[in-house]
Design a protein around this nucleic acid. Structure first.
Lengths: 158, 158
DNA sequence: GAAGATTGAGTTATCAATCTTA
DNA sequence: TAAGATTGATAACTCAATCTTC
C-alpha cells in the first residue's frame, strides 16, 4: 500500500496565499468596478454602460446591425436583458428593430444616426472613466501579462 | 512654432491595442463572472454569493460581529443592500442583528451557529467554482504579476 | 424537437429621503 | 452638521414559461 497519490484532488485544494489575494481583488473588482464606471457616466453621457455597450457592438458590426442573440454574445448580457434594452433604446431612437430577412424567427437591431451621435458624444467620457478607474492604476509593463491572462479568463466564461 | 507638445492630454488618449484587449476582457469578466460563479452555487450551497460574502466577512471579524458600514466595506456591497440582506439572513437565522454598545446609532450583525454551519457547508462548492472559472484558466507563473496588479486596481475603487 | 425571441413574475440593487444619535 | 442606518420607490436583472419558426 505504498501507492502514490497526487498531492490532492484539484477541486478541493484550498487557495494558495497568492491565489487568495488575487481572488479577493477580483471579487472586489467585479462588484465595485461597474458601479465606479457607471457613477456619473450616465449623467455625463446620457447613456448607461449597457446601452453604450450595445451601441458600440452595433457600430462595429457589418451594416451596423446584429441579431439579438449575437448582440447578447457581443455585450455579454443575457438575451432577455438585451431584448428589453433594445426595446427601450428603440423608443429613444438610439436604434431600431427589424425582422431578419432570411430567418423569420430572428430580430435585428440596427444603429440609427441618433445612436451614432450618442455613441460619439459618450466616447470621451467613457474613455476618461476607463483611464481613471483602470489604466491609471496599472503598470504599463504589466499589460502584456495581464491582457492575455484576462482574455483567457474571459474566453472561458459561458 | 517648434514648441514641443506632450504626446496627448492623458484623459483623452485613446486606448492602445493592448489596453483595448485588456479592457474588453475585463468588461466581459465583470459582467459574466458573477453570473458564472453564482450559477448553480445557490442550488448547491443554499446561499447566494452575496450571502456567502457576508458570512465570510463576519467569520473573520473579531467576535464574529461587524457594524453594517464595516460589513458593507468588507463585502464591497452598498450599505442599503447590506441592511436588507442582513434582515433577510437574520430571518433565516444565518446571523442576528444587535445594537452597538458604545454608539447607539450603530447596528451590528453577528454570526450565528447556523450561519457558521452554512458557511462551512458552502465552502467546498465556493472553492470549486473559483477554481473552475478562474484558476483553471490562469497560468500559475502569471499569478505573481496578476495578484498585485489587481490588488492595486481594487484598492483604487471607491 | 431545437433555436430565436419575447414576456410575466419575482429578485436584486440603487437612489433619495428620512430618522436617530453623535 | 455630519454619520449610521433604514425604508419607499424605482430601475436593473434573471428565470421560467411561452410563442413562433426552423
Amino acid at each position: 500500500m505504498t501507492e502514490q497519490r497526487p498531492p490532492e484532488p484539484a477541486p478541493h485544494r484550498p487557495l494558495e496565499p497568492v491565489e487568495e489575494r488575487l481572488w479577493r481583488a477580483l471579487a472586489e473588482i467585479v462588484i465595485a468596478l461597474p458601479r465606479a464606471l457607471d457613477d456619473g457616466f450616465e449623467a455625463d453621457a446620457g447613456l448607461s454602460l449597457s446601452e453604450y455597450g450595445v451601441l458600440a457592438a452595433l457600430r462595429s458590426a457589418p451594416d451596423h446591425s446584429l441579431r439579438l442573440t449575437a448582440l447578447a454574445g457581443a455585450t455579454a448580457l443575457s438575451l432577455s436583458r438585451v431584448s428589453r434594452l433594445v426595446d427601450a433604446m428603440a423608443r429613444r431612437d438610439l436604434c431600431e428593430r427589424g425582422r431578419c430577412a432570411d430567418d423569420r424567427r430572428g430580430s435585428v437591431a440596427h444603429l440609427t444616426p441618433a445612436g451614432t451621435s450618442a455613441l460619439r458624444a459618450a466616447y470621451p467620457h467613457h474613455l476618461a472613466r476607463i483611464r481613471e478607474h483602470v489604466f491609471d492604476h496599472l503598470d504599463p509593463a504589466d499589460l502584456s501579462t495581464l491582457a492575455p491572462a484576462l482574455t483567457r479568463l474571459a474566453a472561458a466564461l459561458p
